Computed example of a mutant assay.
Amino acid sequence: MRKRIILMILILVFSVPQSILADENSSVHTWKSLNNTSDQILQLVKQQEFEEAKQLLDYFSASFLEVDFQKEGVTMSALRTVTSSFESAVEAVTAMDMSLDRRIYKVTAFRLAVDALSSDYHPLWLHTEESIMNALSRMKETVEESEIQAFQHRFNEFLRHYEMIRPALFIDIEPQQLQRIDSQINYLESIRSGHVDEDKVLSHLTIMESEWSNLYKRVKEDNADPSLWWVMFSIGGMITLSLSYVGWKKYKAEKQKVRQKD
């Protein structure tokens, strides 16, 4: 009897309709393939193999258009963002006079956008935390040392990083939060022109540091792997049911002993 109950528990916990499982596996395979293709494109650009990268971009386009976006729950805004970053990537591999760094930035933006669309948790753009936070920290250092020209250079460097990850942010975070980040950057651009008020710039950079730190922290927490919780819940439920059954059997045996004594 005990083995039968445990077997039923296992069946209830782990059984999934085969049609649903097949659809999920097909969907996962499609997004994984698209993600891998975008990564291969980026590697080719870094190696300055632009013709091969263009061929893979054409392949990506054909594969991407086969996705049922409505079924996959892809919003129109996310679709437009990936399409725009794709067009920038095409420009990067076909332009005649673009610097290699600029090409890599554009194709990396495309790579991060595809990953943000296809990843259920921990998107690649989270790995930019160190570079973004360091860029903000270096800007503060230049202002504190009254090196305004160096500050302008560091700020332009930060803007290049932000331009690279913004498509992924547009897909992954709430519009209000992205709007707040854009407003903070636009304000910093406005106060850096002309005479730079060092105290005002430092105060605003501190606000930006806090905003970005909270952003990375919140997204990491929100994008934790849900499969871990599912496994913990499943195993915990099985153990609870098994212990309950054992406890019930023990209670029944004790009760039987009392009856025999009576």
Rank of each mutant, 00 (worst) to 15 (best):
I173F: 00
P167K: 00
A22V: 03
L188N: 01
I235M: 06
M164A: 02
K106N: 09
P123V: 00
L241E: 08
L124E: 11
I6D: 03
L117V: 00
E211H: 11
D225W: 05
T37L: 08
T240E: 09
L202D: 01
R4M: 05
V45H: 01
H127N: 09
E145H: 12
K32F: 15
R192Q: 13
W212E: 02
K200M: 10
Q176R: 08
S85E: 03
F60C: 00
L79Q: 04
E198G: 13
A224R: 03
R218P: 04
Q177K: 07
E141S: 09
N223C: 14
H29I: 12
A22G: 04
I191A: 06
T206P: 01
H29E: 12
D197A: 07
V143E: 10
E209I: 08
L10N: 08
A53H: 01
L42H: 02
F158D: 07
H195G: 03
Q256Y: 14
Y216V: 01
I20K: 14
Q152Y: 05
L7Q: 15
M1S: 14
F158R: 02
D182F: 00
V67T: 12
R111M: 10
N36M: 12
M1D: 12
A22M: 09
D222V: 06
L44A: 08
Q18S: 13
W31N: 05
R80F: 14
A92F: 01
K257E: 09
H122I: 03
V82H: 01
E157W: 09
L65K: 08
S15G: 02
P175N: 03
V219N: 00
R111T: 05
E141F: 09
M232W: 15
L159D: 13
R102D: 14
E254L: 12
L34N: 03
E144G: 09
A116D: 00
S193K: 15
S193R: 14
E130T: 03
Q43W: 04
Y216R: 05
L228P: 08
E211C: 11
E91I: 06
D182S: 13
K71C: 01
E198Y: 10
W230G: 06
Q70D: 07
L57G: 02
V74T: 09
K249E: 15
E87Q: 13
H153A: 14
I165H: 03
L126D: 00
V196C: 06
P17E: 10
L42A: 04
D23C: 00
Q40G: 11
D39G: 14
H29Q: 12
N134E: 08
Q55M: 10
R2Q: 09
Y216C: 09
F110L: 07
P17Q: 13
K249G: 12
S210L: 05
V246M: 15
A116L: 00
Q43L: 11
M76N: 15
Q149V: 11
E49K: 13
M76V: 15
Q40D: 13
F14A: 07
S119A: 11
K140G: 03
S61D: 13
E144I: 06
H161F: 07
I5C: 04
E221K: 10
K140Y: 09
R80M: 06
S33P: 07
Q70V: 13
L228W: 13
D225H: 02
I11L: 07
E72F: 07
N134W: 15
R154S: 15
E52F: 12
I6E: 05
S210Y: 08
Y216H: 14
L21R: 11
L178D: 03
Q149F: 13
Q149I: 07
K106M: 09
D197V: 02
N134R: 11
T108L: 02
